[in-house]
Amino acid sequence: KNAAKIVNEALNQGITLFVSDNKLKYKTNRDSIPSELLEEWKQHKQELIDFLTQLES
């Protein structure tokens, strides 16, 4: 999976991924984040940080 797909899947579940101080963060109104999503974010962390940083610049 690529970073764009992961970010879109998160958005579809009401979760916004973003970068703050070079760290991957998220915002959501959900009570909890599915563990498989958290695991996927960890596996692709640097790719996600790079992707989101490019989007914001």
Rank of each mutant, 00 (worst) to 15 (best):
L38K: 06
L38I: 13
N22M: 08
K5L: 14
N2H: 12
K27L: 08
N12V: 13
A3T: 05
S20C: 15
A4E: 14
K42G: 08
D50E: 14
Q13V: 07
F18V: 05
S20H: 14
K27V: 09
I33W: 03
Q46H: 07
P34K: 04
S35I: 14
T16L: 14
Q43M: 14
I6T: 03
K27M: 08
K1H: 10
Q43C: 06
R30A: 07
E39V: 08
K27W: 09
Q13G: 04
E39R: 10
D50Q: 11
E47I: 11
L11H: 08
A10V: 01
N8Y: 14
K1D: 08
S57K: 12
I33L: 06
I49Q: 03
D31K: 09
T53F: 06
L55Q: 12
E40S: 09
E40H: 07
K25V: 11
E9G: 04
E9D: 11
E47W: 04
L38F: 09
D31C: 09
Q46L: 08
S57W: 06
L17I: 05
L52Q: 00
E56S: 15
N12A: 15
L52T: 01
E36A: 12
E47L: 11
N22H: 10
T16N: 06
H44P: 00
L11C: 11
I33D: 02
Q13D: 04
S57R: 11
T53I: 13
K1W: 11
L48N: 00
I15P: 00
L48G: 00
L48F: 01
I49T: 04
H44M: 08
K27D: 05
A10H: 01
E56T: 12
P34E: 04
E39H: 08
H44V: 04
E36S: 10
Q13H: 13
P34I: 03
A4I: 07
K27C: 15
L55C: 09
S32I: 12
Q43R: 14
K23R: 08
L24K: 00
K42N: 13
G14A: 04
D21A: 07
D31F: 07
E47P: 05
Q43D: 07
Q43A: 14
T16V: 15
G14M: 04
P34A: 05
T16Y: 15
S57Y: 06
N29Y: 12
K5V: 13
N2K: 10
P34F: 03
S57L: 14
D31W: 04
K45D: 08
P34Q: 04
E9C: 06
E40F: 10
I49S: 02
D31N: 11
F51L: 05
K1C: 13
Q46K: 09
T53H: 07
D31G: 11
E47N: 05
S32R: 08
E40I: 14
S32F: 12
E56Q: 15
N2S: 15
L52E: 00
N8E: 15
Q54C: 11
R30N: 08
K1R: 10
L52F: 06
I6Y: 04
N2E: 10
S20K: 13
I49Y: 05
G14P: 00
Q43N: 11
E39S: 08
V7W: 09
K5T: 15
T16F: 15
Y26R: 01
K25L: 15
K5G: 07
K5E: 15
V7D: 01
Y26A: 04
I49W: 04
Q43G: 06
Y26H: 03
S20V: 15
D50C: 07
L48I: 15
S35G: 10
R30T: 05
H44K: 05
L37G: 02
S57C: 11
L52G: 00
L37M: 14
W41C: 03
N8H: 13
I6H: 02
I15S: 01
S20Y: 12
L11E: 07
I15L: 03
N12E: 15
E40G: 05
L52I: 06
K45E: 15
Q54D: 09
L17M: 04
S57H: 13
F18Q: 04
R30Q: 06
S35Y: 13
L24D: 01
K42W: 11
E36T: 10
K42C: 14
A10T: 03
E47Y: 05
I6L: 11
E47Q: 09
I6F: 03
N22D: 08
R30C: 06
K1M: 10
S57Q: 13
R30H: 07
L55F: 12
L55G: 09
P34T: 05
L48M: 03
K5D: 15
D50P: 03
L17F: 04
V19C: 05
E39P: 02
K42E: 15
S57A: 14
G14F: 04
L55T: 10
E9A: 07
L38N: 03
P34L: 04
T53P: 02
Q54R: 14
I6C: 03
T28S: 09
K42T: 11
S20Q: 15
K23A: 10
L48R: 00
T53V: 11
P34D: 05
E36C: 07
D21G: 12
T16I: 15
L11A: 14
L11W: 10
S20M: 11
E56F: 08
K1F: 14
K1L: 12
L24Y: 01
S57T: 12
A3G: 04
T53E: 07
L55W: 11
W41S: 01
N12P: 01
S20L: 12
A10M: 03
K25H: 14
E39F: 08
F18M: 05
L55M: 12
D21M: 07
F18N: 02
E56R: 10
L52A: 00
L24P: 00
K23W: 05
E56N: 14
A3I: 11
F18E: 04
H44E: 02
R30E: 04
L17Q: 00
L52P: 00
Q43E: 11
S57G: 13
D31L: 13
T16E: 12
A4Q: 12
P34M: 03
K27I: 09
W41V: 05
T28F: 04
R30V: 05
Q54K: 14
W41L: 06
P34R: 04
V19A: 05
W41T: 02
V7K: 02
A3H: 02
